[in-house]
Amino acid sequence: MDSVILKTAIRFLLPLLLLASVFLFLRGHNEPGGGFVGGLVASGAIALYAMTCSAAAARQMVRVSPRVLIGSGLLLALGSGLAPLFFGRPFLTGLWTTVTTASLGELHPGTPLLFDLGVYCVVTGVTLVFIFSLLEE
């Protein structure tokens, strides 16, 4: 698509949308949001970039192949489910730890965050496979 407006706007839109996707992903920890929507927004941002410039340029920007995203996301999610087994807990039990930081106060990261990160990667990867194959037709 050859549009000057979009080409100019994408420079600002892309980082904003990617930031929004990270925000949604982290927000999902306790509130509505999460890996699935986060991943969709991220792939939406990349899709916009691919439509303005080209699929090849978008591929270059993402650097890793979408399939690598899918595979590693699946492994990450599975790993977060299997991790509790090493502590004698059932599959998929959440393991939590408390981290205190100066700026953010007390945080409670746990294995569900890893699981969500896996979902984020898989959703981004799958959507990008769709979009790239459609654009490259």
């Binding site: 399939r67 690598v68 595979g71 590693s72 492994l75 599975l78 489910g81 299997l82 087994l85 599959f91």
Partner: peptide, 22 residues
Amino acid sequence: QVAVILPIALPLATMAVLVLAW
């Protein structure tokens, strides 16, 4: 516990590795 989950987890892990080695 491990015995019950492995028949589900192993194919998933194999599939993920297969996707990486596409």
